[in-house]
Amino acid sequence: MTPSDARPMTASSLADVVDVLAGHRLAALTGAGVSTDSGIPDYRGPDSPQRTPMTFQQFVGDAAFRRHYWARNHVGWRHVNRTLPNAGHRALAALEDRGVVTGVITQNVDLLHEAAGSRNVVDLHGRYDRVLCLGCGRVIPRAELADRLDALNPGFVEQVQQVGDVEIAPDADAVIEQTAHFVVADCAACGGMLKPDIVYFGETVPRARVEQAFALVDAADALLVAGSSLSVQSGLRFVRHAAQRGMPVVVVNRGATRGDRYAAVTLDAGTSETLSDLAETLPAPPHRTAAH
């Protein structure tokens, strides 16, 4: 049976997941669902509102879109900067400490895995706390740009928060209606266009980062997907890769995913409680010998 023909067993309890994963070194692939309990909503969860994220082409090709994005991001990044890791993030870090999880590939940009103590993390879609110049390639901290945008737009954040015209989004963005007068900053070094160091819809993940993620999967014995609908190819490809290599795949998510057909087990459940249970239940894998 090929991976694409396989039909997952829907887990009735945590025991089904443990049976598949026990004794294996796990690579973890996480999505927005892992961070919802930290107060960062996801795009595609069962209860998520309809969203239309800005594309890379819109950002670079239209000054009005770019102004709108930076106005939203100027509010939204502050919310993400205040968020704290939840039990799911801490559980993955604990599993790494015990040698069960070898590393995390995350589609999130919130850095909460690192904040929880995970050390081997591939931030597949970038990170919210950095800004990249598309002209000279300079990378600056998002906090540095915040100071410049505050100076260019005095009182903007306070005004928006006062009228309550904000909805936080999962990519350090926020939805704001009134952005027409927002002033955008250019690169202080070359005057080039600044962009969050985040992979937009319609943009390609850097090749070196993809290769790092594939290497992380190849170094593991099984793949655990947590909190991702796997709706985009950038995450789904690692599930397909694991299945093609004959590795067990377990998917823990609220609702169905595009990767369910590749999974040995799927569990429709929240990630915080499930990962916490796994941290308490999964035994440390046996020592791997050189001949393995």
Rank of each mutant, 00 (worst) to 15 (best):
F201K: 10
R207P: 07
A242N: 01
G164N: 06
M193I: 15
G155A: 12
P170Q: 05
R237V: 13
A213W: 00
P196W: 06
D150E: 14
M247V: 09
G191T: 08
D197H: 10
A220P: 06
Q178F: 06
A243E: 05
G192N: 11
R240Q: 14
L216I: 04
H241V: 10
A242F: 07
Q159A: 15
A220M: 08
E167R: 03
R207K: 15
E177F: 04
E211P: 02
A208S: 14
L194N: 04
E203T: 08
V217I: 15
G164C: 04
D165H: 03
R148E: 11
I176H: 00
Q161D: 05
N153F: 09
D165L: 04
T204P: 03
D173H: 03
H241D: 06
A226D: 02
V175L: 10
S229A: 10
L236V: 10
F156S: 07
L152F: 12
A185T: 00
Q162D: 11
H181G: 12
D221R: 09
V160K: 06
R209C: 14
F201Y: 15
L223V: 09
H181I: 08
R207L: 15
E158I: 09
A180C: 06
V184H: 01
F201I: 13
S228M: 05
N153L: 12
R148D: 04
L152K: 13
I168G: 01
P154M: 07
I168M: 02
C187L: 05
V232M: 08
Q244I: 07
P170K: 01
I168E: 00
R209V: 15
F214V: 11
D165Q: 04
E177P: 00
S231R: 15
A219F: 04
R237A: 03
R237Y: 08
A219H: 13
C190E: 12
E203N: 09
H181A: 15
